[in-house]
Design a protein around this nucleic acid. Structure first.
Lengths: 333, 333
DNA sequence: AAGATCTGAGTAAACGCTCTCTAGGAGGGC
DNA sequence: GCCCTCCTAGAGAGCGTTTACTCAGATCTT
């Protein structure tokens, strides 16, 4: 394992018979360089298999050409759809994306700041991170974009999906099936998305729904575990915070001998890949993950350039009925 | 958005009335420093909210204190379990983990090398990356650990789960239920794991199985789509490459009016979270994801220190019977 | 045709940190 | 009491790039 010295820009310069500055110019695609020289440089680069040192570039230019993504849970497929789209945008613009999972709240700002020593900007998908931390980031002028999190007191660009309207639509669907007593399996208490969804569910009282909230979370396990308590309220339908929780709930119901949707209806949110393939296929809300990720990148890229794009409106999500909802048991609809 | 200048080590040094060298020593935890001074430095650090510049540290020390993880598909939950464990190990040892998803083969070595300009080592979870690329990495002396990929011609440490034995056990289970004609829904053709699993399935001829291979992949969609072709072979059981494909297959079967396991049995591999919650709960192989991720880190960490640990044996996975397998239709078992 | 302007390549100063080397004070041996 | 060793803190040389600047030669102006 001989420690062969890294080939630096200097080596390339020597090999091509030019100065390091010229090599740097060629690498960065500056037009002000003699084509013949550029060609020589390119050949030398190739031959020596030169790879610029990212750290040095970052130090010298103050730009790292990479952005950090902070999210609470890597295993939630909902995030995949988003960051995949973000990634193609970033790649297109020559940026690298570094994903960091972080769960414990309180620590998050620290992590962000730490990550920041190697990135130019941040995408915050984390619902749990305290508002103070965000405000701090905003105050520091760190290019940051909030995803699916609308914070009024924070001066940061944000992109988000409309949670309220589609959830209301979903409730309407439930109401039209004759449901009345429903339980909302909540997501993370502080999360904006959770507040919005719950708000919509409460609003649905006007449609005749009589909702109760039960604490849960955005995971299969949490949905599974919250189901027993939910059943205590004797509901005809379970409105889960997201698809994962819905899947967990369905599994627990099945275990208890309750069939979905015959005995009890269950709804999800997000439309992750599994939702369609589950049994029963989940009635849920199709969240525009790709569009969200794309827009997040556009906003972030602008921030990186010091530009501040106009705050875009909420993206709309659409309700889709599948097999996990049916007429309320005991209703004559 | 005033561009407030970053606080550097020099600022801290000035504030504490010491030299930058001393600050650096305090930060790195060197013991050779007067406690009183150390305290002063620490206080200054705190007050100024000093954060060392990662790029500069990387440049100066040649260490980035971070490792790159290259994986083919962020949405496969199997990887989450692994990298989660790796991450805690890395964090414990003061390393940051950068996840990079990369799909197109051919490009992968380039990406690795590129990522390498900012990391100290690599964890390769990507089954598709060409062997040549790996050999190249090995030749360059880049600290790299291969996960779930055993390459005999490559001189790199690897950690992997035993695929063969548990798969054979699974086949035995199927055989004992009276199955004979089975279809193996294959994973990525070049992948080591795929070869191992298929080898085991073929070996199971000795148990009376009569296996056929059908091309598919490690995703729900691929499992779903390969099912029709699989049915052409009139099997009594489907052995999917992994849980995702199995889930896809079950979904397609249901669509076709075939019940699992009454009409046809289906098995998975990996035991992702969903496997247990799906309907029917998947008979599958429990892969020790956490142990794998942990061991991968241990090996990598040793490589980073220039040490080469002894090649560990394959980790063992265990077969678990759940509800997706039953007696072969038409068998009297 | 001489001075002004422009082009494009080279020189060298950062960038923020680490780490070797040096200096000087404290402590110890004789 | 003097010299030598030990130990700690500071000075400063990089680390590999980028990016003003500088400067020579070419192209214009009139």
């Amino acid at each position: 394992m001989k420690e062969r010295r890294r080939v630096t820009i200097r080596d390339v310069a020597d090999a091509a018979g030019v100065s390091v500055a010229t090599v740097s110019r060629v690498m960065s695609g500056s037009l002000k360089v003699n084509p013949e020289m550029a060609e020589r440089v390119r050949r030398a680069t190739e031959e020596l298999e030169y790879r610029p040192n990212g750290a040095a570039q970052g130090l010298a230019s103050g730009m790292h050409r990479s952005v950090g993504v902070v999210l609470p849970d890597l295993s939630n497929p909902y995030f995949h759809g988003i960051i995949k789209a973000t990634n193609v945008g970033a790649a297109r613009d020559g940026y690298r994306m570094l994903v960091t999972e972080w769960q414990e709240p309180g620590e998050e700002l620290g992590v962000c700041l730490d990550v920041l020593s190697r990135v130019d900007g941040l995408l915050v998908l984390s619902a749990r991170m305290e508002t103070d931390g965000l405000r701090d980031l905003a105050a520091r002028g760190v290019p940051t974009v909030l995803v699916n999190r609308v914070e009024l007191g924070v001066d940061l660009p944000m992109v988000a999906v409309d949670n309220f309207s589609p959830m209301l639509e979903l409730c309407q669907h439930l109401a039209s099936l004759g449901h009345r007593r429903v339980v909302y399996l909540a997501g993370s208490p502080g999360a904006w998305q959770n507040r919005e969804r719950w708000k919509a569910v409460q609003q649905a009282r006007i449609l005749g729904l009589d909702p109760v909230m039960v604490a849960s979370d955005a995971t299969i396990e949490a949905g599974y575990e919250a189901t027993d308590e939910a059943l205590g309220h004797d509901p005809t339908a379970l409105i889960a915070f997201n698809d994962l929780a819905a899947l967990g709930a369905v599994a627990r119901l099945r275990e208890l001998g309750l069939k979905t949707p015959e005995d009890i209806s269950v709804t999800g949110f997000d439309d992750v890949a599994l939702a369609r393939y589950a049994d029963p296929a989940l009635t849920t809300i199709v969240s525009p993950k790709a569009a969200l990720g794309e827009q997040a990148w556009v906003m972030l890229e602008a921030s990186l350039r010091g530009e501040r794009l106009e705050q875009p409106p909420l993206l709309s999500a659409t309700f889709v009925q599948r097999a996990s909802t049916g007429p309320a048991k005991g209703s004559r609809t």
